[in-house]
Write a protein that binds this DNA or RNA. Structure first.
Lengths: 233, 233
DNA sequence: CTTGACAGGTGTACGACGTACACCTAGTGT
DNA sequence: ACACTAGGTGTACGTCGTACACCTGTCAAG
């Protein structure tokens, strides 16, 4: 009777507990190490037990996205649509930065969950009450693209860090084969001691694009016809 | 000695043949049905044979992306940077539309291949020779985000088409729970007889956002300081 | 107090997947 | 004539998601 770790002692499972454990596991071990089996083990339970709380892995991932989206705070009370939207999007970005796997997972969802729909509805509402026509709001939401949920793709991630000598050789090759890319990478790294890239201020880039779009939206808001755009005949 | 379908008759494999077959398979069966085993079968070969031509599945996917990027034509000869960039991006978009799996796969690549770098270099070059500073070009490329390779995420795909009665119920629920989303969906579907969405003109949306950005870039081009942006301090 | 339904955890098993590793085989340069 | 090698083969392992039958404790109705 030495060990009795069985079913009795541990807290009972629940959809919520499963989702939170999944998020935690993905946060610390990466989304690729998130399998139903590992998750079950983490919860001290047999893999199939999870299926009493989520239909399948897809639904698990949907639920995980919901957890992240729930972390986005409620809209700020700003009277000004522009700063209200800006704050909300930046808050979404913070949520996504806390869970690096989330953007990748969101991209693979095929159908929005109610939680996501609620978030989108509230965001759309900010434009509508800010004086945008339904039609213009539609285009504007499309224009925001991946920024709606607070992320943009990174193009390069940290390279596997070879020694400086070969790094220099690689750099020379890069510079001759892709002069423009190299120039841009240099410009980005001007406040950094690494040779290539990495020193790019993502937050700045994100806000740069966000503000560019918001400014564009503002201009359109005043000139856009209030009805739907005229149909081609 | 009835059948002699063995190794002798079929054309020899090659990295190129493997990649093309993979692209074809993904095109017609979807990216989820692309496995090393199915691909091998398609080529009349044992799975492990593929590994003599690609290191692993990741490299296969990299190669497939290369095939797609190669389909993007060379830059137009326009003197005007803006229309040249515009054409190139729209041409990239066409390539991606021919291979619906490509955008999803591109998002999962961790390191750009030489082919992708070449494309990016040429695109950056269009801004640089168009009078953009290296610094501004950097930000501008970030701002383009997923549009660089010609796609934006779709939010909804075709729903599994239930009967009209329940569809109406669903619609009612949607309209009360997510009034703004519904309104937008309606606005988009005004030239369509389906009840919810679907009638959204993706090409229009894409160009809307693209032009919004390009116009914004144009304005910045004239006001942006030529050096790198000043450091905080 | 019995019963039986049901929510929730278990155990086994299957078919896919990516790919390591040892092997074979045909063609080539010496 | 022979070793080398590029390229195709066969077997095998570990991992994955999950179908299906089963067990067990709880609790309401008879």
């Amino acid at each position: 009777m030495a060990e009795q770790v069985d079913t009795a002692r541990r807290a009972p499972l629940s959809r919520d507990r499963v989702l939170r454990a999944a998020v935690a596991l993905a946060d610390e071990a990466g989304i690729d190490s998130l399998s139903m089996r590992k998750l079950a083990q983490e919860l001290g339970v047999v893999p199939m037990a999870l299926y009493k709380h989520v239909a399948n892995k897809e639904e698990l991932l949907d639920g995980m996205v919901d957890v992240v989206v729930d972390e986005i705070g409620p809209p700020a009370g700003d009277a000004d649509w522009k700063s209200a939207v800006r704050k909300r999007i930046l808050s979404a970005r913070q949520a996504l930065l806390r869970h690096p796997w989330a953007s990748r997972v969101i991209e693979t969802r095929t159908t929005p969950t109610p939680v996501v729909l609620t978030y989108m509805d509230s965001l759309i509402g900010m434009f509508r009450t800010g004086g945008f026509s339904a039609d213009l709001t539609h285009h504007v939401m499309h224009a925001m693209g991946s920024r709606i949920l607070g992320f943009t793709q990174e193009m390069f991630d940290d390279s596997p860090s070879v020694d400086p000598a070969t790094q220099a050789v690689i750099f020379q090759e890069m510079a001759t084969k892709y002069p423009y890319v190299t120039e841009i990478a240099m410009a980005a790294a001007h406040e950094d001691d690494s040779i290539v890239g990495q020193g790019c201020d993502d937050q700045f880039e994100f806000e740069f694009a966000l503000d560019l779009l918001l400014d564009g939206f503002e201009r359109l808001r005043e000139t856009w016809p209030s009805g739907p755009r005229p149909r081609a005949t």
